[in-house]
Amino acid sequence: MKRAVFRNRGLPYLLVLPQVAVTLVFFFWPAFESLRLSFFRTSPFGDRTFFVGLENFQKLLVSPDYYQSIVNSFIFALGVTALGVGAGLFVAALATQKIRGLTAYRTAVLWPYGIAPPIAGIIFLFIFHPSYGILPYWLSFVTAYEFNWLLKGGVAMALVIVATAWTHVGYNIAFFLAGLLAIPTSVLEAADVDGAGPIRRFQSIIFPLLSPITFYLVVVNLIFSFFGSFGVIHAVTQGGPGGATEIMVFKVYKDGFIGLNLGSSAAQSVILMIVVITLTALQFRFVEKKVTY
């Protein structure tokens, strides 16, 4: 650790002041308020609040709608993570020999990261469109299944998962390629000399060496898809059809902002806080391991 050099009584406080002020006013105070409100119920006119203890939480935990939103969040997060990390692993598996131009491929896959998931959602909305979309059109030759996201919850979920994963696939691939580039050539050559085929090389060398990156990416993708996914749901499906794509962060917004059920919304915020704390702790626990590449 570096030795602090400068001596000054007031200056360091002045330097941290802007950041601390923003943190207190927009992060800590609201988080504290959410925590407090989660134990209260607001009267229908919003003029009075009553202390109700854990009632908000109890109500949530017996509410089938809330369970549905938890299940939806997991399906969504696991779907996005599986697609994104799976594609990254797939590319890593393809590039087991050090082929040329890996950085060019990185450029060629990384750009969708700049696209906001809601915009990606709108593009896929058209690709999935039941009457004009190209995907239902192609699928109509293969299957008679009616590929209509307006009616079928599963299709709507697939739509938002694919759109979100699309924006993040390149990010995952880029990390895997960076990891791949860092594997010493000598190790791969040694395996080659020992007669290990591509599959064996992937299994015994590349995958184990990339596993810290894999783990890290799984956690980052989970965090992103749990908490960064409000926009795509709001822009594309609004939680529908029939609540099939209503994920937890969308429900907090809907119940609080539109339903004006402040107590319940605050309780949901608190539950989400617990989720994000767990995931962030996981991310930082393994942050040292990740540095291997």
Partner: peptide, 14 residues
């Protein structure tokens, strides 16, 4: 650990 999504209503109030 405090993304907007987990402090949504209260931040709006602030």
């Amino acid at each position: 650990m405090l993304p907007v999504e987990v402090r949504i209503m209260s931040t709006y109030e602030v």
